[in-house]
Amino acid sequence: MTPEAPLLEAEGVTVRFGRIEAVSGVSFSLWPGEVLAIVGESGSGKTTLLRTLHGDLAPCSGRVLYRRRSGETVDVHALPEPARRLLARTEWGFVHQNPRDGLRMAVSAGGNVGERLMAAGARHWGRIRAEAAAWLARVEIDAGRIDDPPRIFSGGMQQRLQIARVLVTNPRLVLMDEPTGGLDVSVQARLLDLIRSLVRELGLAAVIVTHDLAVARLLADRMLVMQRGRVVEAGLTDQVLDDPQHPYAQLLVSSVLQA
C-alpha cells in the first residue's frame, strides 16, 4: 500500500477565549478512513477543538490543513467563507450532540435529508426523495415516517436522522460531538452499531468527541486524551485504554465502572 498523505492535520492549534486558553497547542493527523476519538472530562476543550477543526472557530495560533477530494491541501481557516461553506456541505459532515442543533424540527424527515442534496444543487424532486428514502432505510427509520417532522421522533431516531442528513452527500470526513449523549444505554448501543457499520462501509474518516470511553473503544482506531486544553496522551485505542501512561489517562480509565 502506498503511503497516503493525511486527510486532516492540526498543527499547534491554540484557541483562547479572553484569558482562558481552551485549547493549547494541539497537533495531530487524521488519515483517510481512520476514526479518531477525543476523550476527556467536561471543560477539557474537546468541543472547542472540534469546532475549530470545522472552521466555526478561528484558532489564535496554529492551523488546520485539509486535503480535498481533488488532492489539493487547503488551510481551513484561510479559505474564504463561500469555499469553506461549500466544503462543509459537500466533503464534511458535523453531527451535533443535540439533534435539535443539526435538524430542522419543523421540516419533514425527507426534507431534512434532502436539504443537503438541494444545497449541493440537486433539483429533481423524485431523485431527492428516493435518495432520502434510501438513507432513512439505512439508518433504520421506517419508510412511512418520511413525511413526519423530527420533533415527533424519539431521541434515538432524531440522532439517526441527523446522521442520515450528514451522510447523504457522501462526505469524506465526519466530525461528531458526543453523538450518543443523552440517549439511554440500549439506544446508544444500536446507534454505535449503526455508526460503526456506516463508517466502515463508506470508508469515512471521523473525529468523535466523547467522554464515554466505551464509545471510543467501540468506534475509534486511535484516541487523544485531553486535559485542560492539552493532549496528554495519544495512541491506539486499545493501547491507551489498556495501558494508560499519563496519570490523568490512568485516572480516567480507572474511573469507569466495570460492568
Binding site: V107, S108, G110, G111, G114, E115, R116, M118, A119
Partner: peptide, 18 residues
C-alpha cells in the same frame, strides 16, 4: 451573499411531499 439557497428548495420540497 453566498447564493446558499438550498433552504428555499426545502420549502418547495415540503409542499410537494405534503
Amino acid at each position: 451573499a453566498l447564493a446558499d439557497y438550498g433552504l428555499m428548495y426545502v420549502k418547495l420540497y415540503e409542499d410537494i411531499a405534503r
